[in-house]
């Protein structure tokens, strides 16, 4: 059984690489460059499988704190092999996290660890890392706006032609009279 997968991205990065599974853990290596990332088997708490933009993500939740590592670019057909590998090497069950693709703009927000998740019919539609929220405003009784930090820092003139569309702001309508506890 193949223990290596190609065209895998590390985190939000845009460099592709390959990832390999072994009993000691997993290791990712950049294709064009020397960057490597290793996740030790002993540090793995659980592993999730979810659909993201770049196909499927393997999300490794680490025992230490709430830290996690993510790898994007797996294909639908990789699921069974990955499930077998993580079972065999790390004794964990690959947990499928269902994502909503309904196309609705209404649902519920929920703070989950270090993320603000937007749920549609109780399924995650997307998550926003709380750390990326640079500013938030409440306008009137029903509107909350979130501004996002420029990932490039912006200020130091690092004007790289980004290939991606950069999310800068999101506004929510939140029912005014409703209070939610917890």
């Amino acid at each position: 059984m193949t223990t290596q997968f190609e065209n895998i991205y590390y985190g939000a990065g845009t460099d592709v690489g390959k990832i390999r599974f072994a009993s000691s853990g997993m290791g990712w290596k950049q294709l064009e460059g020397d960057k490597t990332v290793t996740v030790s088997a002993a540090d793995i708490k659980w592993i999730q499988w979810l659909r993201v933009a770049r196909n499927f993500q393997l999300r490794i939740i680490l025992k230490e704190g709430r830290r996690r590592e993510t790898f994007d670019g797996f294909l639908r057909d990789d699921h069974d092999r990955i499930a077998a590998l993580v079972k065999q090497h790390f004794s964990v069950t690959l947990e499928a996290k269902e994502i909503s693709h309904k196309g609705w703009n209404w649902g519920a927000t929920d703070v989950q660890g270090d993320d603000l998740a937007f749920l549609v019919s109780n399924r995650t539609a997307f998550e926003l890392p709380l750390a990326n929220i640079a500013n938030s405003n409440i306008a009137g009784k029903t509107e909350v706006s979130l501004e996002f930090a420029n990932a490039d820092g912006g200020a130091n003139g690092k004007k790289k032609a980004r290939a991606v569309d950069e999310l800068v702001e999101m506004r929510f309508y939140v029912p005014g009279t409703h209070t939610r506890d917890g």
Partner: peptide, 29 residues
């Protein structure tokens, strides 16, 4: 996969890249 806004006419949907997720919004919304 390109992490860019995409208009899918066939499904009457605009797909937005949000923190690595591909998030569809039906044109009715």
């Amino acid at each position: 996969e390109g992490l860019r806004i995409f208009v899918d006419r066939k499904s009457q949907t605009v797909i937005l890249p949000i923190n690595g997720f591909a998030v569809p919004f039906h044109i009715n919304t």
